[in-house]
Simulated scan of single mutants.
Amino acid sequence: MRRVVATGTFDILHPGHLYYLEESRKLGDELYVIVARDANVKHKPKPVIPEDQRLHMVAALKPVDHAILGDLHDMFRPIVEIRPDIITLGFNQHFDEERLRQNLGERGLDAEVVRIAGYFGSLASSSKIIERILNTRYRSGPGGS
C-alpha cells in the first residue's frame, strides 16, 4: 500500500486545495493530510479559520483518508509516524525539495518528494478570496458601496 502525505494550512478551502489533494491522492492508495497548526504558520498571515475547524473541513474531503494536525515542535514527527512513500508539495509551498529530501534521509525516511502543479482558477488562493471579499463587499467600508 502506497501512502501519500500532503501538507498545508488549508485556510478558506478553495478549488486549488481540492486539486492539490486530488492530484496527491492519485499517486497512492492512502492519503494522509497534515494540517498546519495556527502557531506554526509564520510565512504568511495567520489563518482566518482556527486549526480545529480547518482540520475538520479537510478530513471531510473525498480524496482524504486521514487528516491530522501537525506537531507544534517538530514538523517531521507526524511524517516519521506515518512513514509515507510519497510526500507532495503544493506549487507555492516554500520548501527546498533537496533540503527536504536530506532532512527525511537523516530521519531514516526514503519518501519520494513530488511537487504538484498549480490550479489556476480565478479564486485558487485564500488571499485572492479575501481580496475579492474586501473589494466587492467593503469597497466603501462595511455595509456600503
Rank of each mutant, 00 (worst) to 15 (best):
P47L: 08
R99Y: 11
G118W: 12
L72C: 05
Y20L: 01
A39I: 12
H56A: 13
V64P: 10
S126E: 10
S140Q: 12
E131G: 02
S127Q: 12
N92P: 09
I82C: 10
V4T: 08
K44L: 04
I130T: 13
R77K: 15
L123W: 11
H14N: 15
S24H: 00
F91D: 12
M1D: 10
P47R: 05
P47C: 03
L55E: 03
I116M: 02
H17Y: 01
L13T: 09
T88L: 03
R101D: 05
Q93L: 09
F95P: 06
D110L: 09
R107V: 05
D96K: 08
F120V: 08
I34D: 02
I86T: 06
Y19S: 11
A67H: 04
R99C: 09
L109T: 03
Q53L: 11
V113E: 00
L27D: 06
P142A: 15
R37N: 11
I133N: 14
S127L: 10
Q53S: 03
E112G: 03
Y119R: 03
E51Q: 14
E30G: 00
H43I: 07
D85E: 09
S122D: 14
V80F: 04
L27S: 02
G28P: 11
E106Q: 13
A39Y: 01
K42D: 02
L61T: 02
K26A: 15
P50I: 07
K62P: 00
S122F: 07
L21N: 01
H17S: 05
R115N: 00
R137K: 14
G121Q: 08
L109H: 05
N92M: 05
L134T: 09
S127R: 00
P84F: 09
G143T: 15
D71V: 10
L104K: 12
V5S: 06
A39V: 14
H73E: 12
Y19P: 07
D52A: 08
R107P: 01
K26D: 00
R115H: 02
L55P: 06
L61C: 10
I86C: 00
T7F: 01
H56G: 09
L100G: 05
M1E: 08
L69D: 02
F95K: 00
H94V: 11
D52R: 09
G141V: 13
A6F: 06
V4H: 03
F10C: 06
I34C: 00
S126H: 12
E98R: 14
D74E: 13
Y20V: 08
P63R: 04
H56V: 01
D52W: 05
L134I: 11
P84N: 12
A117H: 04
I87R: 00
K42T: 14
R99H: 13
E22C: 11
L61S: 01
D96Q: 12
Y138M: 13
I79P: 05
V33R: 00
K62S: 10
G108Y: 03
D11N: 07
I34P: 00
